[in-house]
Design a protein around this nucleic acid. Structure first.
Lengths: 122, 122
DNA sequence: ATGTTTGTACTATACTTATATGACAATAAT
DNA sequence: ATTATTGTCATATAAGTATAGTACAAACAT
């Protein structure tokens, strides 16, 4: 189970953000093998996007054998295991941290400002 | 002075990458107040993009008062500093940190993951 | 069997991004 | 004054992304 979240300012299109989050959800153990994902309509409502956008993400992941879909039943995490390498994981973390610190810098915040604030969220 | 560099695979559009790099340049001290940026045409040739793409980045930063442009002369780092109250500042930091950590969580990263990554950026 | 839920498919529209091209206005250099 | 350089503006084109709306096919629940 994932708490999906889209960032309109991220640069990456919505369907790609959905793809990313599912892949990383599997890699991090937040999504289990065989687990059912939200229906395209449910996730579309949740994320306030069009159902076609969710369908596009699911479709691409099905082609990659990450998901298995059954019309009339739902979409599920494939039994084939997806391995995300340490490097990919590190790159992603670096990417979103860079993205974020850019925004923070533009508001005049330092890395220490951010770290201190994040510590209060623990 | 910056060594601009675009990454076609970054997800973020070119003009936004340019904006980011200028903002980072200012925050990190690589760009000084009043310093002249490359001309739109020079940077376009350098980055192998259209001059409109560079112009778009400069234009947006001028609207944000980050840059000052003079037609016929060039584009410069603005001398105007933007004033924000302490409370506004604190609220903004909290807001963007919360927003960010939500996104990071959706990728399966923990606060500690983020903090450790941010520390390497210092 | 019927109706609901599921994924899928299609058309149409609109916005964003990026390019190519050409022209214009303000400043600087000569 | 003339020329070159600067940012600006406008038009056209193209690809990618996202939306709205509609409809269909497969599976399930009753």
């Amino acid at each position: 189970m994932i708490n999906f979240k889209l960032d309109p300012k991220a640069g990456a299109p919505f369907y790609r953000q959905i793809i990313d989050q599912i892949k990383f959800g599997i890699a991090s153990g937040n999504l289990k093998i065989g687990e059912q994902l939200p229906t395209v309509r449910a996730l579309a409502v949740d994320l306030k996007v069009n159902l076609n956008t969710v369908a596009k993400a699911y479709k691409e992941l099905e082609i990659q054998n990450v998901l298995e879909t059954q019309q009339g039943t739902g979409t599920f995490i494939s039994k084939i295991e997806i391995k995300i390498s340490d490097k990919e994981r590190k790159d992603k973390l670096q990417e979103i941290c860079h993205e974020f610190s850019t925004i923070a810098f533009s508001y005049g915040f330092s890395i220490d400002d951010i770290i201190n604030q994040l510590k209060t969220q623990k």
